[in-house]
Write a protein that binds this DNA or RNA. Structure first.
Lengths: 169, 169
DNA sequence: GCTGAAATCACACATTA
DNA sequence: TAATGTGTGATTTCAGC
C-alpha cells in the first residue's frame, strides 16, 4: 500500500551527507545532526525502502582506468513505432559502454553518452550497437574534449523540501 | 610517491560489485570471490587510496523528490580566453542545478546538463547563471522527454584490464 | 590467510509529544 | 499513535601475527 509523506529537515540533511559519503558511521552522522544513532539509522532505512535512495555504490573514476574517451551520440530511428523505440532503448540498456541515454525532441530521437577506451573501441561500438542492428536512419557523433563537472548530487532547497514524496510500497 | 600497477582480475571483480553495491559486507564479497575477508578489505582500501574508487555515495532519485525536469543547455562564449573559460567552468561548478558540464568542439563551447524542479526554476537558473553574468554569446536549450538510462558503472573488459593504472599519490 | 579486539549495526523496550 | 531515545546483543571491521 503506497503512502506519501514529506521530507523534513532531518531527511534532507541526511541525504545531503549520504550523497557525499555513505560510509560515515551512523553514530557520527547522528552526533552531527543531534539525534540518536537508532533514529539516524531508521530514517536512512526508510529513505532506502521508499526509493528516495536508489542505490549505495562506489564511484569509479573512468579516467583512472584508461577509459579516457567520451562521445555524444545522437540517433534518429527509421521506424518510431513504440515497439521499435523500446527495442532501441533495451539495446542501449544492455550495452556496457552506454552511460546515459535520453529520449529527446527535435532533429534526433536519442541522445546517448558513450564511454570507451579509445576511438577504435568507439568505432566497434557504433558498428555493433548502432549502425549494425538496423532501424537507424541517421546518427551523428560529437566528442567532448573535457568533462568539467559530473555529479550525482541534487540540491535540496526549501521549495523541494515542501514537495510531497512518494514513499514505500 | 606515485607508483603504477595494473588491475588484476580480483580488482575488476571487486569494482564490478562495488559499483552496484558498496554496502555489502566484505565477508560476503570475499566468499563470492573465493578469497579471504582481510584480503578483500585490503584490496578495496588500496583501490580507494589509489583514487580508482573516487567516492562512496548514496544515489538519490531526483524524480522521487520532485526534480522532474531535465534540460540540455548548449552555450557559446563571447570571449574564449583561458581566464574566461575558467570563470565559466567555475560558475557551473558552483551551481547546484548543474549536474554535468562538458567542454565540446563545434558550434557551441559547452554542453551542460541541468536538473531542476520545473520550468520556472529553469528560467531562473538561466537568468542567474547563464545570461545574467555576461560573456555568453549564445545559448540553446533542449528538453529530453525521458531519461532511459543513467549509470555510473563502467565496464571492465580484457583490454581495459591490461592497461596500466596510476595508483597512489 | 587466520584470529581476536574494537567498533558498528540493529533490535527490543520504555518514553515522549 | 507514531516517532524518538536508551540499552544491549549480534555483526562487522580491521589490526597483529
Amino acid at each position: 500500500m503506497p503512502h506519501f509523506r514529506a521530507l523534513d529537515k532531518l531527511d534532507r540533511k541526511l541525504l545531503n551527507h549520504l550523497q557525499k559519503d555513505n560510509q560515515i558511521p551512523t553514530r557520527v552522522l547522528a552526533d552531527k545532526l543531534h539525534v540518536s544513532q537508532p533514529t539516524c539509522l531508521r530514517r536512512i532505512r526508510d529513505l532506502r525502502e521508499a526509493g528516495v535512495i536508489n542505490a549505495d555504490i562506489s564511484m569509479v573514476d573512468p579516467f583512472a582506468l584508461g577509459y579516457g574517451m567520451l562521445a555524444f551520440l545522437e540517433v534518429s530511428l527509421l521506424n518510431q513505432a513504440d515497439e521499435f523505440m523500446h527495442e532501441f532503448e533495451a539495446r542501449m540498456n544492455k550495452e556496457a559502454e552506454v552511460m546515459q541515454c535520453y529520449f529527446v525532441s527535435g532533429e534526433y530521437d536519442y541522445f546517448v553518452v558513450v564511454h570507451v577506451i579509445d576511438m577504435d573501441a568507439y568505432y566497434q561500438f557504433v558498428r555493433r550497437a548502432i549502425s549494425g542492428p538496423g532501424n537507424v536512419r541517421h546518427f551523428h557523433s560529437r566528442f567532448p574534449m573535457k568533462k568539467t563537472k559530473f555529479t550525482t548530487r541534487i540540491a535540496f532547497d526549501e521549495k523541494a523540501a515542501e514537495l510531497q514524496v512518494k514513499t514505500g510500497k
